[in-house]
Nucleic acid binder design. Structure first.
Lengths: 137, 137
DNA sequence: ATTTATTTGTACGTATGTATC
DNA sequence: CGATACATACGTACAAATAAA
């Protein structure tokens, strides 16, 4: 359970594994706060940078969300609304640019869906709120 | 052009903006190498951490790809193969877990597409290589 | 095949800025 | 205002991967 600084797996990966396990086990429930950086630093006897890299890793996986000056929280499992893919349309997934992320108010680790309609019109959807569907015949 | 340490926009964001502009203008062509961390540090008069955060930001946007011990490179625009979404199927986009990223050999900043077939079968596709389509009526 | 130089990765410490409560 | 918490940014050092001599 304890972190081994001499292990070949980096300290920050070890801590991320511990936290991920606690999240998936429900010990850290959706919406609940992770321990602060200072606490994680002290309790695991590691530096602050390693702690921050751990949380950054979980953020990039879409598992947690960090609010500056407040804390890091386990992301709620998003409620997805169903969007029907129109006939003749196509869709690609990609990460948003910084500007797109801000304007769409997306958390880190959230991709976007870019839907091209048959007439060339493009629609950009938040990847964590949408489930694209094609109705049965 | 020069980086202003007293600006309210962080140094690493300023550098990322500069590099992103050079990428989108074609000065840094797809496949070409970015300047090394040491060069960027010296030429812009900033610390290595700021340089690394800049490149990390571009990586998370899927614009560059970093190879340890070698350098960072402008990502090639991916060739997407078209995959038809079956009738009755649905699809969501999300970021891969660390294990998924390794096993699918995905670069950072590449989402995945999770396709659920009508019979509940699930298929996981790399988001940078696939364009999902629904054929016209 | 060994070594050397280059480059990125990990990790620590320190200091200061800024947002939230 | 003060306390807490995360963000930015510098410096340092060593580890590890890569390529070239």
């Amino acid at each position: 359970m304890a972190i081994d600084p001499r292990s070949h797996t980096p300290v920050y990966v070890q801590l991320a594994d511990i936290l991920r396990e606690q999240i998936e086990a429900g010990e850290l429930a959706p919406g609940s706060a992770l321990p602060s950086e200072a606490r994680l630093t002290q309790e695991h006897g590691i530096g602050r940078e390693a702690v921050r890299m751990s949380i950054s890793l979980l953020r990039s996986e879409g598992l947690v969300n960090t609010v500056r000056g407040h804390g890091s929280y386990v992301r709620e499992v998003p409620q997805r609304r169903q969007v029907e893919l129109a006939p003749g349309a196509s869709v690609v997934a990609r990460m948003p640019s910084g500007g797109e992320r801000r304007s769409m108010q997306l958390d880190e680790g959230v991709p976007i869906l870019e839907v091209r309609g048959p007439e060339g019109n493009v629609e950009v959807l938040p990847g964590d709120e949408v489930e694209l569907t094609r109705p049965p015949t």
